[in-house]
Simulated scan of single mutants.
Amino acid sequence: ALRSRPRAEYTLSTKVGRLLEPLPFADGDDLGNGFAVRATHRRVWDFSADGVRRSIDDSLVRLGTDRIDMVYLHDPDNHVAEAFGQAYPALERLRAEGVVGAIGAGMNQTTVLTRFLRDTDVDVVLCAGRHTLLDQSALAELLPEAAARGRSVVVGGVFNSGLLADPRPGATYDYRAAPPALLERALRIKAAAERHGVPLRAAAIAYPLRHPAVASVLVGTRSADEVQDAADMYSRTVPDALWDDLRAEGLLEGDAR
């Protein structure tokens, strides 16, 4: 889809740390382990320097380009030593060579991402689900650290896996069925947003962007309609009075402004 477009017209990012190795005999899928791909490949964690470079080289071939604008270390939670000792230095070298632009790490937690900000020269971190209307834990250390160092934060999971997109029985939160207490909280936030004429999805997208360290947000889309909806929600004006009401009702523990 992108090969015929001028390279300067778009920004391209990817992740490293997971490789897919083909298997001779397999069928079905691996959704039980969190991978929405057919079980024709073996999922391999690889944060070695060689694995990072191999992953980037393979991506360049598949994408038909000579550079990638942004690369994240993908969920190195259980591979922290290797990520800091091998994968990150490999990304630094690729950045120096001009093969990749900005480098960083993406995780569903804040502690290790804060360490990346303090101990390395990352340009950006991707924090999923920890700076949302239901979870403001990134405000404690991660976001202040990024702001103090002039680094960018991309906030993913702004809908917390779906609960903030459509709070109803059976909705998911952090990839699992949402607990009743969180469902009730999401419904109260939705009611407050609607009193101000704001869809909950618009409020969920707008909230993280209030912090000066947040450069952008990510939403998951499965169809052209969902892409259009996300763009529409992003363009909506959210009044400051909504945030004031959420704080007054005890529904918003922290805010950047």
Results as ranks from 00 to 15, higher is better:
D46R: 03
M70S: 11
R7G: 06
S13T: 11
G254I: 03
D58A: 15
A178V: 00
S152A: 15
S137A: 11
V112E: 10
A138Q: 05
R38M: 13
G51T: 02
F116I: 09
L143V: 04
A96Q: 14
T14K: 06
V112K: 07
V125Q: 00
V100Y: 00
G197R: 06
Q136T: 08
V99G: 08
V214F: 07
E184H: 09
P24D: 15
R18G: 13
L246A: 00
M70A: 11
V125C: 02
A148L: 12
E226C: 13
Y175L: 04
T14S: 09
P199S: 09
A105F: 12
D240Q: 09
P6H: 12
S216G: 02
P239M: 05
G34T: 02
A49R: 01
S223Y: 04
E145K: 12
E253I: 02
L143Q: 04
G220D: 00
E82N: 09
R210F: 11
W243N: 02
V122E: 01
S48L: 04
G162D: 00
G101I: 04
H79C: 11
L242N: 01
R185M: 07
A224W: 11
S13Q: 14
R188E: 07
V61T: 14
A213L: 06
L91C: 00
G220P: 03
G51L: 01
A1F: 09
T172A: 15
Q109E: 15
A146M: 08
K190V: 10
D50E: 15
D166V: 06
L251A: 09
R195P: 10
L218Y: 03
G106I: 02
M233R: 13
P167V: 05
P76I: 05
L183H: 01
V227D: 01
T132N: 03
P208V: 08
D46N: 12
N160E: 11
A202E: 03
L187F: 03
P89M: 09
T114N: 11
A26K: 11
L31E: 13
R151F: 00
G129D: 03
Q136R: 03
R257S: 07
A248N: 05
A39K: 08
V61I: 13
E141P: 04
E253Y: 10
R7W: 04
Y10D: 08
A128H: 06
L12N: 02
L200Y: 05
L31S: 14
R151A: 08
D27K: 12
D245E: 15
S137N: 08
G157C: 02
G254L: 13
D135S: 12
D174L: 13
A165C: 06
E82C: 11
V44Q: 00
A224H: 12
T40E: 14
P22T: 03
A230I: 03
